[in-house]
Amino acid sequence: MTTRLNPYLNFKGNAREAMTFYQSVFAGELTMSTFDDYQATQDPSDAEKIMHGQLETEAGLVLMGADVPTGMKYTEGDNFSVSLSGEDEGELRGYWDKLSGSGSVTVPMERAPWGDSFGMCTDRYGVGWLVNISGS
């Protein structure tokens, strides 16, 4: 798998509806997982919210999205970030180090419940980044 760079959209409780809409626009395969699927919440109101949705089209378009869990800031209009994902650990950790080095780390790069290494940061220009390194 090559390294991908794609938009990641955040929603306030309607990610399932939004991602299904985008599937009706672009077609393709849509997969979605809830916070409960990965035991990734302690707040029962977040259990059925979408922790990760991914739409992949035959044309190679990739769009990701998720619901913002209770307690995290959500501002309509700037509810997006950029996702970097792939298998090349050296390449992706290099990007992570450069992006987070002069910015701030939101979620440290570490093993995630789904088995990959994952981290979130905001670069020095205020852009949010999600970096996911596929597990072996």
Results as ranks from 00 to 15, higher is better:
C121F: 14
I50V: 15
L84T: 02
D37E: 12
G60K: 12
F21H: 11
V127K: 02
S33A: 11
G77W: 09
S102T: 12
M19F: 09
P44G: 10
E87H: 08
K98E: 14
T57K: 04
V107Y: 10
F35Y: 15
N6D: 12
E48M: 14
F11G: 03
D46H: 03
T34I: 06
N14L: 09
D97W: 09
D46G: 01
F80D: 01
S81T: 08
S134A: 13
E87F: 01
F35S: 01
E58R: 09
S136F: 00
A47F: 12
E48L: 12
L30S: 00
D116Y: 00
E110L: 06
Q42E: 15
E76L: 13
E58S: 12
F35K: 04
D36A: 15
S117P: 02
N79L: 05
G53C: 13
S117R: 11
E89P: 05
N10D: 11
D43Q: 08
R16L: 15
S100T: 12
L5P: 00
K73D: 12
L84D: 00
V82R: 01
F118I: 04
S81Y: 01
M72F: 11
E91G: 02
A59S: 15
S45N: 14
Q23D: 02
F35L: 05
F26C: 02
D37P: 08
S83E: 10
D88C: 06
Y125G: 03
K12M: 08
G103L: 02
L5H: 02
S33G: 01
T34S: 15
L55V: 01
L61M: 13
A27R: 03
V131W: 00
L130H: 05
G115H: 03
N14F: 05
Q42S: 15
T70S: 12
M32L: 12
I133R: 03
P69E: 05
V105N: 14
L92R: 06
T20Y: 06
S104D: 14
I50P: 09
L84C: 03
W114C: 07
S45W: 06
M51D: 05
I133D: 02
P44T: 07
K12Y: 10
G128N: 13
W114P: 05
T31M: 07
L30W: 00
M64W: 01
L5E: 05
T2C: 04
D67M: 05
S24W: 01
G101C: 08
S117H: 13
S102G: 08
T34M: 05
V25E: 04
M120C: 11
E91Y: 06
V105I: 15
K49N: 13
D116C: 00
A59F: 00
G103K: 04
M1T: 05
D36H: 13
L84F: 07
G53Y: 08
T34Y: 10
G126P: 10
Y38I: 00
R93K: 15
G77L: 07
Y22D: 08
V107T: 13
E29N: 11
D37S: 14
L92K: 04
Y74A: 00
Y8V: 08
A59T: 14
V25N: 01
L84W: 02
G71I: 04
M19N: 05
G28D: 01
V127W: 00
G71Y: 07
S134D: 07
